[in-house]
Amino acid sequence: MAVYSASFTIDTKGNADIIDITPEVSDIVNSSGLSDGIVLVYVPGSTSAITTIEYEPGLVHDLKAALERLAPEGIVYQHNEKWHDGNGHSHIRASFIGQGESFPLIDGKLLLGTWQQIILVDMDNRPRSRKVFVQIYGENSYS
């Protein structure tokens, strides 16, 4: 079993900015030389998340609207009362989705559905530079 690790950085606009990171993850998978295993995609931090979606304008809008319904920005959060940074909703939203996802690697290809893309969602209330880590646990087809 081999482990391959890499990362990339994405600059975001914040405020539930949703970014398709499938090309960056696929490039890392292709560079790994591994053929079969598991691909972990992870973003550190408590105000961002990794998930999948059909990345098209309608669903991007719908996801942002759903996050606003689940954890509205304009209500009282104890976090804001303590830290006065106005991003209590950001922490709650990110906790619903989570900071990482795992995907199968089969015959050197990331297994995703036809309309499925990997996305980074930055929930913070300001632009951020997010470092995304990709770690692949797998077998090398040449071993």
Score class of each variant (00 low, 15 high):
A2L: 11
A2K: 12
V3D: 09
V3T: 14
S5T: 07
S5N: 09
S5V: 11
I10Y: 06
D11E: 14
T12S: 13
T12R: 06
N15G: 02
A16Q: 07
D20S: 04
E24G: 05
S26L: 11
I28N: 06
V29H: 01
N30C: 11
L34Q: 04
S35Q: 12
I38G: 07
V43P: 00
P44M: 04
S46H: 06
T47Y: 04
S48W: 00
T52N: 14
T52Y: 12
I53T: 10
I53N: 09
I53D: 07
E56R: 08
G58H: 09
L59E: 07
H61G: 07
H61E: 14
H61M: 07
K64Q: 09
K64D: 00
A66I: 09
A66H: 06
L67Q: 05
R69Y: 03
A71C: 13
A71P: 09
P72T: 02
P72G: 08
V76T: 15
Q78I: 10
N80V: 06
E81Q: 13
E81V: 15
D85H: 03
G86E: 14
N87I: 10
N87S: 05
S90F: 00
S90T: 12
R93V: 02
A94N: 07
I97A: 08
I97F: 01
I97Y: 05
Q99A: 14
G100F: 04
S102G: 09
S102F: 01
F103Q: 03
I106M: 07
K109H: 14
L111I: 15
T114V: 10
Q116M: 01
Q116E: 14
Q117A: 04
Q117M: 04
Q117W: 12
I118R: 01
V121K: 03
D122N: 07
M123P: 05
N125L: 02
R126V: 14
P127G: 13
V132E: 01
F133M: 10
F133W: 03
V134I: 10
I136V: 06
I136F: 00
Y142M: 05
